[in-house]
Design a protein around this nucleic acid. Structure first.
Lengths: 182, 182
DNA sequence: CTTAAGTGTCAAAAATAATGGGCGACGCAT
DNA sequence: ATGCGTCGCCCATTATTTTTGACACTTAAG
């Protein structure tokens, strides 16, 4: 969705006229008109001023979108695609959900299997999970922890992290992370 | 945090030089230099082009905060507070994490226990989960499904929904929802 | 009907952002 | 030391955005 349409939607939701929003933000009504028509692309500073009159943050503005439309709610075990390789299976729940905000995985580690060092490709985001079977060695930012069934974790994905099954049986983790990268 | 600093941080995290990012985004390195020094405020269209070269969305860019500072990553089973009542235990993972975006629960349903009809208080948000033990009857927006171990679900929290353990043994669900309400 | 205050839009001037070229500084190989 | 490639920054010109000051339209009141 383009910036102009988005602004118009936000403004109308708050029952503000272009002129009223102009007064509150310190810009002019003409500017707002042109932005909403996508005749110009506002500078970040201008947009920021506009949103202060709403009020709304830039983050909220850009993450604002239509409620997820979907017909399917249930994703059977056999329908979950495997994103892993080798001794590691990563089964994705809700693969077909359009525009989802989270990614939930059922992670199955063969004995000795590990996730490999994850490169820091993402500049934001959080990851959490819970061990349901087996014994996992978790490394986050240098810290090493041993997790057994029932233990959970929560960390920012900006930190280097890796998982390894140090038990003799298969280990299982249910994890969720946001945003739903790939 | 200002836009320039933010961009610089994001660019450097992805190990891109101003010129490399310029090449990828179609803008010039001079522009990037000036933006990062906050000598100019980029237009949304320019910023969008820049972020496409990262790649990153505008929403991600503006919701990017300094990495959540926290010392603890692991949350043991015994440390997880119980938010449920009656035959339902809701164990919260990462309770003490400041400003987290998700809420992960380990949900334990006694035979016959249910979650009750959840009122629609939230105008946005998503919920997903996976059944790890037992048999659950899930109702979402009138649709009824039976889920067994390994089956997952994903739906918008704007829809009415409820869970019930229809098996003879305890049932377990690992769920995550966003935003981390309450 | 007339007036006044409200709405969103438009065109030309003023202000701001983006480009293209050039600068000194750094690391690295010759 | 010299050259080479890259880094980020600076500046004058060009391109884009923002303001100014209109315009046409709608609504409600006199």
């Amino acid at each position: 969705m383009d910036t102009g349409t988005r602004l118009k939607l936000v403004r109308e939701r708050n029952k503000l006229s272009q002129r009223e929003l102009a007064r509150r933000s310190g810009l002019t009504n003409s500017t707002i008109s042109q932005i909403e028509q996508n005749r110009v692309s506002p500078s970040v500073s201008s947009l920021k001023k506009l949103l202060e009159g709403i009020p709304m943050t830039l983050a909220e503005f850009f993450s604002f979108d239509e409620p997820p439309r979907q017909e399917r709610f249930v994703f059977r075990a056999v329908e979950q695609p495997d994103l892993g390789s080798g001794g590691l299976r990563l089964l994705l729940v809700g693969a077909s959900v359009e525009g989802r905000q989270m990614r939930m995985l059922r992670e199955l580690y063969a004995p000795g299997a590990d996730s490999g060092e994850e490169p820091i490709v993402h500049t934001e985001g959080e990851e959490c999970g819970l061990v349901t079977r087996g014994t996992i060695e978790l490394r986050v930012d240098g810290q090493v922890s041993i997790l057994n069934s029932g233990d959970g974790y929560y960390f920012p994905t900006t930190l280097p992290h890796s998982f390894k099954n140090i038990g003799q049986d298969e280990a299982e983790i249910i994890s969720a992370n946001t945003p739903a990268n790939f």
